[in-house]
């Protein structure tokens, strides 16, 4: 046994040195390699999982918003149609009303105008009458002025009596 140990060069000092070597290496590797690398692997795994779930959530949300958009577009379309329809209807109604109103107005305007014209006409007739009378008076004054007063009066009386007679006869 001792010869075997000697032949293989086994020495407890060397054994201890190699063992210490290994233990120190184990501690160094654990502290500076395995620990940080395992931590970073775990963190990366978590981050990737987070990223995947985020992407899935984002996709879901996108799909939802797409649907929502479609829904909104659809309702908007329907609403737009109904708005246009009601607008058309109200426009038609308004148009009719406006026409009716306008007709009424036209009638009143025409009536007013007629009345005004009528008034003007009558006023003008009065004026003409008044002016005519004045003119006739002046004319008469002018014509009769040339006759001597007594003769003129005779003539007038004669005329008036004639007139009276004709009025009585007519009756």
């Amino acid at each position: 046994m001792s010869e075997l140990i000697h032949n293989f060069g086994i020495d407890w000092k060397l054994l201890a040195a190699q063992a210490v070597n290994f233990f120190v290496l184990l501690i160094i590797l654990k502290k500076f390699a395995y620990g940080p690398v395992l931590t970073i692997l775990r963190q990366r795994r978590e981050r990737i999982e987070q990223g995947i779930s985020d992407a899935e959530a984002a996709g879901e949300k996108l799909r939802e918003s797409e649907q929502e958009k479609e829904q909104i577009l659809k309702t908007a379309h329907v609403e737009a149609l109904s708005i246009v329809n009601t607008a058309e209807e109200t426009a038609k109604k308004h148009g009719e009303e406006i026409i009716v109103h306008a007709n009424k107005k036209v009638e009143t305007v025409v009536a007013d105008a007629k009345r005004l014209i009528e008034e003007e006409k009558s006023k003008m007739g009065d004026d003409v009458l008044r002016g005519g009378r004045e003119l006739v008076r002046l004319g008469i004054v002018k014509v009769l002025g040339k006759l001597p007063a007594a003769e003129r009066d005779e003539v007038l009386i004669e005329e008036a009596l004639k007139e009276l007679k004709t009025i009585n006869v007519r009756r």
Binding site: A17, V24, L25, L29, F32, P36, V37, I40, R44, R47
Partner: peptide
């Protein structure tokens, strides 16, 4: 034993290089 020390030194150097440059 000398070689195993060299191995130790090589591994330690690699590990320190790794530790300094560890990134996400």
């Amino acid at each position: 034993l000398l070689t195993s020390w060299v191995v130790f030194a090589v591994l330690t150097a690699l590990v320190f290089f790794l530790y300094r440059n560890i990134r996400m």
